[in-house]
Design a protein around this nucleic acid. Structure first.
Lengths: 214, 214, 214, 214
DNA sequence: AATGAATGAGAATTCATTCAT
DNA sequence: TATGAATGAATTCTCATTCAT
């Protein structure tokens, strides 16, 4: 009790010594950077070196490499979720969906590990699965509202949007280094494809993302 | 079938003893299969085992794992190139582009290593780069013709199409196992987005893929 | 119970602050428990956690893991020594020896680390060696008296008894979990073998345990 | 076929190149030596170094450390089994049992890993379990015959003998280095304890070793 | 005096690549 | 030419011990 931070300070994480907290932050920053640039195959040794700490310190903060990856990826997922909820409650349906997709693609830009994980790697991690599940709920809601408002074609579902958001970034990814804003071009193109007026009937049924979990 | 080199074309490969040639073929067949199913992370030992040869034989035929991956991937790239040329010369522009994109996405759908490489892995390999360069020339041509025919919006270039082809597959990839034909849905959606009717101006200039090589 | 040092005996340990003393006691209690149950491979972290102290505190009280193990093992050795002296002074020679052996095997049966150390592990520790040396003196005395009383065969020495006590437990150890009292069976068998009436001449001279120290 | 050794050479192991065979032998010899002297905790690196090979070579020959330990231990177990069968079929019951126990203890002399494994460590290994099971069958048979011949007391079973054989060596083990033949002394003592004459009833029922497997 | 964060030397294991046979 | 044995660097992870707070 007495070691806990007074209730007025709004942090849920267990209290750490200042130096430990600084190390943890450097660690997460290094992991964020290297995972983004090199993907989940980057070694713990490299992350520790870039953070300026020993390898052991990584494992003091995270029980396994998988847990560290989950931390970094969930950070992004949670930020996106939170931003998405804000958009859903403040914008009209069409704008909310567009703004959310923009945010979502943007977050993936330059983040290979995020893409890998969203695309299925280390999907075994519970924490990541839970975040993704919540995100899908939000996407379903945003999509349903936009569809009901007539802003997007009737045959597109939330699962489609979730996949497209990942795919749009992948489209631009090969040039991420030299042309980091390119994803905006393919997002725009995709949004045009989602408009009701263009719609040809789609030749394959909408996916059931739930299947992915099993 | 049609993509095999006709027997009359004099081969550039060094002459090999019959058994060496047979080994090489078994090796490539095994690599093709395993790389397609498991991606570039498959081990040389596994490939050699499936081919029924020793690991040393792999390195006798290919200087490194990377070179073997390049061989297999280039095969697919060349086959695609050859198929694309055929389409370009036999179909009207709009159909040719659509058929080519369909082919191209389809090939990725069955080949994990191909996807990895096209999406950037081992892009350092010269042979792969050369194949991709030639493919881009073809795509430029197909795209230009379709654009001139008014089949696609005016602000879309060959480089856009090349990237989109990769991205469409990535969009469907997370569900590749449970819903292997899903890419057709996103291809259709993308094609709708490419239509000239009512297109909104794109917010970011077309990429210069050449930059990718450097 | 009886093996605890009476409160009136002036302690040799340095004076400690009350909280330090309490910590040390909790530490030793935790070490006793875990070392007995899991052997010397238990980690300092586990011991510290069970004691409710930090790892640093362990090293404040004991210079190394080895020293902590020695502390706990010596406790048992000293308790056994003290108990043995009591038996030697209160029972007739034959009964005293039998009772001591029973005590000694019994203590091993509940203490994995004790077994490991008695069987040779960390025998390098000076403190342990000293305790064992004193115990051997007692065993020599008990054995000599029993031999002189004609209770055991003439060709058996104190060093034999010391080794047998360890060996009897090792015999039953593989089944310690499922049959914790089994050692009594092999103790009885060994005691029968020690009777003078059964004796065939032994084919190898009695050991010189002192050699073990070097 | 043609690579196989002609049928007249009585070896069942797959053929290895002479250099590989030599390395394997050096490896097993090093493992035998170090496992015997230091127990199963010895590191693969140490074994490899003593064998004069790289660490990778160890894993080429044995899939895991556990498998290497099993190899070395099973060697001893199988040799013992085979020797025991020979004794059972050539000697009268009392002599056969005594000779077998002598052999069995002798094999353990100076072999810490063997003792650890026989005493339960790495008992998870299937190969080891199978060898031990067969050995127990033999011990049961030898013991039954000796008992029926009146050579040993009626209340002693094969499981007792199996445990005693291990325990006898453990008794002498602390002095194994300085007095390597000491086990003969404790074997003789134990054999005296097994004689039917004047035996006191044993205070604890015979163990059921089968329980150990589960 | 107490803490627990940081350390870094290993541990077992994998695998692309080299090289003796 | 083909083989597969040998290599050793790299990987994730553990833990006794040190030291700043």
């Amino acid at each position: 009790m007495s070691e806990r931070v007074p209730a007025t300070i709004p942090q849920q994480e267990p209290l750490l010594r200042v130096d430990a907290r600084r190390n943890r932050e450097r660690l997460v920053a290094a992991a964020r950077d290297l995972l983004a640039r090199e993907g989940t195959e980057v070694s713990i040794a490299d992350i520790a070196a870039q953070a300026g700490v020993g390898k052991g310190t990584v494992f003091r903060h995270y029980a396994s490499k998988d847990a560290l990856v989950a931390e970094v990826v969930c950070e992004v997922l949670e930020a996106l979720l939170s931003r998405g909820r804000e958009l859903a409650s403040t914008l009209p349906p069409a704008d909310a969906l567009r703004a959310f997709m923009t945010e979502a693609v943007h977050r993936q830009a330059d983040d290979r590990a995020f893409c890998e994980v969203v695309a299925g790697a280390s999907a075994g991690n519970e924490r990541v699965q839970e975040s993704i599940r919540r995100l899908h709920e939000l996407v379903d809601e945003l999509t349903a509202h936009a569809r009901e408002a007539g802003a997007i074609r009737a045959d597109v579902t939330g699962d489609d949007i979730a996949l497209l958001v990942s795919g749009i970034y992948q489209t631009a990814a090969p040039l991420a280094r030299t042309d980091p804003g390119l994803w905006r071009r393919y997002l725009a193109l995709t949004l045009d494809g989602l408009l009701p007026r263009h719609a040809h009937p789609l030749p394959h049924p909408s996916p059931r993302l739930a299947a992915r979990v099993s």
